[in-house]
Design a protein around this nucleic acid. Sequence first.
RNA 1: GGCGCGGUACCCAAGUGGUAAGGGAGAGGUCUGCAAAACCUUUAUGCGUCGGUUCGAUUCCGACCCGCGCCUCCA
Length: 495
Amino acid sequence: MPLRLYNTMSAQVEEFQTLRDKEVRMYACGPTVYDYGHIGNFRTFIAVDMLQRFLRQLGYRVQYVMNITDVDDKIIRNAARDGVSVQQYTAKYEKAFIEDAAMIGIEQPHLVRATEHISQMADFVAKLLAKGIAYRTDDGSYYFRIAKFPAYGKLSKKDFSGMLDGARVDVDEYDKDSARDFALWKAPKAGEASWQESIGPGRPGWHLECSVMSMEELGESFDLHAGGEDLVFPHHENEIAQSESLTGKTFARFWFHVRFLLVEGEKMSKSLGNFYTLRDLVLKGYKPSSIRYLLASVPYRNQLNFTFDGLKQAAVSVERLRNFRQRLSGQNFPSGCTPEMRMLASETITHMCEALEDDLNTAQAQAAIFEMVRQANSALDAGKVKKEDVAPLLAALEKFDQVFAVLADDDRPKMKTVFDWAMSEGREKDISSELQEFVQSGQMTDAEIQRRIDRIQELRKARDFKASDALRAETITAANITIENTKDGISWRRK
RNA sequence: GGCGCGGUACCCAAGUGGUAAGGGAGAGGUCUGCAAAACCUUUAUGCGUCGGUUCGAUUCCGACCCGCGCCUCCA
C-alpha cells in the first residue's frame, strides 16, 4: 500500500507522490527564536520528524529543511529593549531550540536562518516589483498586491473574490492599496534593526523568508511543506501567493498541517497558567521519552489533550517496551525457532507500516507493537521463544523505534543537561525534588551497581533473604534502577 | 457572524454500515522465598442528545447541546 497523507490543499487524504523518484524535498516552518520552545511547538516538530523518519523507512531519500526565524517584529523589539543586536538576542534561543529538539528525539533537519538570506529576500521583492505584483508605499515598505494573484485563498479555502473585483482603496486608513495586501518588506523604525538593500532600508516580512529559503534549498517546486495548523492562513497562503506569482509554478505539492494541542482540556496559554516549555516539564521531573511518546501517540490531525496523567501513563508504556526489549536481549534461549514468532514479527511490521501509511496513524502503529509485545511475552513465559526468534522480534521493535524514537535509554543524561542549565541560569528553585533525585541517584557507576548486585546474589544463595532484600531495596533507591530476579540471575536497568 | 474539526469505558485514545483496537488505572488470579517483570481473567448491549435513512448505525443524513481551531504575523 502506498503512503496516503492528508493534503490541506485538496482537503482530502491523497496518495503521496513525489516530483522526483524516491526522493522527497520537504520544508517545515521552524521556530521564531525569541523564547524557549513549548510543548505545542514540539508536537508539530515531532509530527514532522516522524513523517520524515517514516519516509526514509519507506526508502525515500529525504531532504528536509527547516527555517529558523531569527528576525521578526518581536525579536527586533526585544533586542532593542535589551540593547543588544538581533543576533545576540536570538543566539541563546536558537541554541536552546537545537538542544531541545535533540533532547526530544528530533533528528536535526537542515537549518536555515532568515538573517542569512536578507539580500535574497530583497531581490525577491525587487522581482515582484518588476512584475507589477509588489508595490512600494511612501514610507518605503513593500506590499504584495493580492488582486494580482486570483488563486489567493486556495489553501485556506477563503473567498476573496469580492476584493479582487476592485476593492475600494482607503488611502486614509491604510497606506497599502487593499487591507488584505500583506507586507513583503517593512520600512525601518527608529532605534530598531534594519538592513540596507537595493530596494532600500528595512526588514523582511515574515512570509517572505520561507518562500525565499525553501525555494533556494529545494527548488521552485518541491514535495511537501509543513507547519502548525495556524500557519495555513495567512502565512502559507501568502507564501504560495508570493512564490507562485513569481515562478508561475506550483510551490509545494503537499501541505501538511499539525493540529494544536490542548493542555488539561484547555487551550495552552500563559494566562491560564498551563503554558509549558519542554524544559519546564523536565524540571518537573518528566522524561523526554515520556513527553515524546505522549506527543506522538495521537495522530497529528487530531486534537491531543496533553495532561500530566497522560505523561505518567506514557512513561509506563515506554517502560513496558523497554522491559520487553531487555527481556529479549538478556536471556539465553534454546536453539531453534518457533515459526509463529517469525510470523508475529512480520505481521507486526506489516500492521505498523499500514497504520503509518494511513495518514500517519501513530495510535494504530502503537497498538500493533503492543499486540506483539503481549503475544511475545506470553510466548516467553511459555518458553516458546527460541534463539532464532529473537532477531526478528527485535527487528520489529527496532522498526517501530526508527519512527517513534523512545527506546534509547538516554533520559538521564538529557535531564542532567537541563538540571545543569537550570543551575547555571540561577533557576535552582524551579528544579523539582523529582528531578533532583533522578539526577543525583543516577550517579552510581555501573561497576558499583554490579558489585552490589553480586552481593545481593551471594546473600540470596546463602538464603539470607532479609539481608538481600534490604540491600536490594536500598540499591533500587540509591541508584534509581530496576532490579529483576530471573532464572538466569539478576538483571538491572536504570529507570 | 463566516469556514472547519471533534464529543467513544475511571483516564488517554484508535476504529468501522453488521454489532467496539491499544495503553494506563482498578479488581481477581498464575508464576516467584519476597518483590519486580510477565501472563491470564475482568471493567462501554455502549460510542454527546433527539429524530431520520437502512434488514441493520456508534459509523450515513438532519436538528440541537457541548468543546476546540482559523478569520492579518500564535506550532
